[in-house]
Design a protein around this nucleic acid. Structure first.
Length: 577
RNA sequence: CGGGGCGUAGCGUAGUGGCUAGCGCGCCUGCUUUGGGAGCAGGAGAUCGGGAGUUCGAAUCUCCCCGCCCCGACCA
């Protein structure tokens, strides 16, 4: 039983000055967490209990799925990370340190290497697979910008799992088992979430999916079709456009277009010259970029920008991507700035990528590769060739859903889970092999799966708070019942104490506000701020032999006889989220 | 890393060259009060983020450093 009279807790009347997002503000005010450094927080008793409750739900669901818990240190020698290249690839996000002998160590940002080596150390036969292991552990990433309190910290608690299989089919099966376990976990946490494709499936499969909890303060943007349920990270959103019949389109026509440096000015000139009907969507923008020092052009409709994040995500194998600079234009004299068209790309030695909207047969207005000249009736596939189609155009609300063509909505969310078919990258690098049925050595294939446990505390808070405070789901709350004793009569406190003991005897955890001399208003405000789902008040109603039961989330109040209170509370709890 | 803002008691804040750094919350003592962050009286609590400088005099002006928050870049 938690007793307010002795609980290590001080709630704050004012919002902390350094907290903006609701979860951060309220978790600090209600005495769950305190900031230690940027992105580093300590947990007070209420916070620890809440975090543990979430951890236990995660643990139970992982165990139920047949995954086994192990535990690694956070402090790791660099060897394994050097073998996989991540000692350098991870860059400044990795916390590095040295021991007294000068040997390099790191604080683990994620543990693929360690799990791979652990399995390598114990297993060597296909008969031992499939295998899934997990841990719940503190991770360290020296984020460039920690933010939003506990949502993006530099130290955070994560559940990470790894699956090990002999075959690709086995991996898909393990992946599906994790997916199911994640659904069960997040449902129990009472989180609203969408499962979103994270990488455009080059293989057509669901190689990677994110669990996103929608909320205003989320830092991930995703696309959702409210009709068919299609959901994708913005990077993974696809565009479906059918080819057009261009047989009736007139031949390419070059025209004078002085002083049209922008799409807007070009559209104005088109409408003046050709009697209206033109808008930016009919023009073709040629964006020149350097991809690992190779010139590429990306074609998008003139009313859209190139989304560099999407482009990068979909340009496999390119590390360094940047827009053309003056010096780059100097190297390509065939490119007339402001009047570039794809017609001469081949001649200029430029690889052409295009948004799917530039489908074969579509007709465009674009640069004529000559100063002050544009061309219209420039037809894709007839007047210029596209080397590769790519998803790189910026996504907008109302774009067509790729599966049912309904206009999509764009929403923000917190990433609470990520499941990922890793493949053989780590197993290969660290030489994790098993013997197959024929006695032949085979590299194992892996999946990796993460749940942000401490982040889930914030995500749940973000989805359930209101103006007066937090409001936890029953299973997550630091106690199920917040029992408030108000008044100065011993009778009130004795009755509250008895109810509390009876509840605890029934396995219902209780926080008892047994503070003497604290005014009722303070106790009510604290109870509402802390957010335990059921508030029971022992006070004025006791004159009639009653107590008051309040549901924190709905605000519903009812009175019930003291004698039936414990039964009533026990019956009420299962009906609450 | 680029841009913006901020740093005064546990928390929220006032104080733009002048006297002993002010107020609210919280905390301690006493009395009163007990259904919506009570009242009165008394009290404790501050390296004014740090350092250097200007000045008769610096929380206040200058320089350097540190830290925090927000936007962006970045983020298995």
């Amino acid at each position: 039983m938690l007793r307010m009279s002795t609980l290590f807790l001080r709630t704050l009347r004012d919002d902390p000055a350094d907290a903006e997002v609701p979860s951060h503000r309220l978790l600090v005010r209600a005495g769950y967490i305190r900031r230690i450094a940027a992105g580093v927080y300590s947990w007070l008793p209420l916070g620890v209990i809440t975090l543990r409750n979430i951890e236990n739900i995660v643990r139970q669901e992982m165990d139920k799925a047949g995954f086994q818990e192990v535990h690694f240190p956070a402090l790791l020698p660099k060897d394994a990370y050097e073998q996989t290249g991540r000692w350098s690839d991870y860059g400044p996000d990795l916390f590095r340190l040295q021991d007294r002998k000068g040997a390099d160590y790191l604080l683990g940002p994620t543990h693929e290497e360690m799990f791979t080596l652990m399995v390598k150390g114990e297993y060597s036969s296909y008969k031992d697979l499939p295998l899934s292991l997990y841990q719940i552990q503190t991770k360290y990433r020296d984020e460039a910008r920690p933010r939003s309190g506990i949502i993006r910290g530099r130290e955070f608690v994560m559940k990470d799992s790894y699956s090990f299989d002999l075959t690709d089919e086995g991996l898909v099966e393990s992946y599906q088992r994790h997916r199911k376990a994640y659904i069960a976990t997040f449902d129990r946490l009472r989180l609203k979430y969408n499962i979103v494709s994270a990488v455009s499936g080059a293989m057509g499969g669901s190689a990677s999916e994110e669990f996103l909890a929608p909320c205003e303060t989320g830092e991930d943007t995703y696309v959702l079709c409210e009709k068919c349920g299609y959901a994708a990270n913005v990077e993974a959103m696809t565009t479906v456009v059918a080819p057009t019949d261009a047989s009736a389109t007139p031949a390419l026509e070059v025209f004078d277009s002085p002083n049209t440096p922008t799409i807007d000015t070009l559209v104005d000139l088109l409408n003046a010259k050709f009697g209206g009907g033109y808008d930016g969507a009919q023009t073709l923008k040629n964006v020149m970029l350097m991809a690992d020092e190779k010139a590429i052009s990306v074609l998008v409709p003139g009313d859209r920008e190139v989304d560099l994040k999407r482009l990068q995500a979909n340009l496999a194998g390119v590390n360094d991507l940047r827009v053309f600079e003056e010096a780059d234009f100097a190297k390509f004299p065939g490119l007339v700035k402001g009047y570039i068209g794809p017609q001469d790309a081949k001649k200029n030695g430029i690889t052409v990528y295009a948004d799917p909207r530039i489908a074969p047969g579509t007709s465009w207005v674009t640069g004529a590769n000559a100063k002050d000249k544009h061309a219209r009736f420039v037809v894709s596939g007839r007047d210029f060739a596209i080397d590769h189609y790519i998803e790189a155009a910026q996504i907008r609300k109302g774009d067509a859903c790729p599966t049912c063509a309904t206009p999509v909505v764009i929403d923000r969310a917190i990433e609470i889970g990520h499941i990922f078919q890793l493949g053989r990258k780590y197993a290969q690098a660290l030489n994790l092999t098993v013997l197959d049925q024929n006695g032949k050595s085979q590299v194992v294939t892996m999946g990796s799966y993460g749940i942000g446990v401490s982040r889930a505390v914030a995500a749940i808070a973000e989805q359930s708070y209101d103006e007066i405070g937090l409001s936890w789901p029953v299973e997550v709350a630091p106690a199920k019942v917040h029992l408030v004793a108000t008044g100065k009569e011993d009778n009130v406190f004795d009755t509250a104490e008895k109810i509390a003991l009876d509840l605890e005897a029934r396995g219902i955890s209780v926080m008892l506000d047994d503070r003497r001399g604290t005014s009722p208003g303070v106790k009510f405000k604290d109870a509402e701020l802390i957010g335990i789902p059921v508030i029971v008040v022992v006070g004025k109603a006791l004159e009639n032999g009653n107590v008051e039961i309040r549901v924190r989330k709905s605000g519903e109040k009812s009175e019930i006889a003291v004698t039936g209170a414990v039964d009533a509370i026990a019956a009420l709890l299962p009906t609450l989220p």
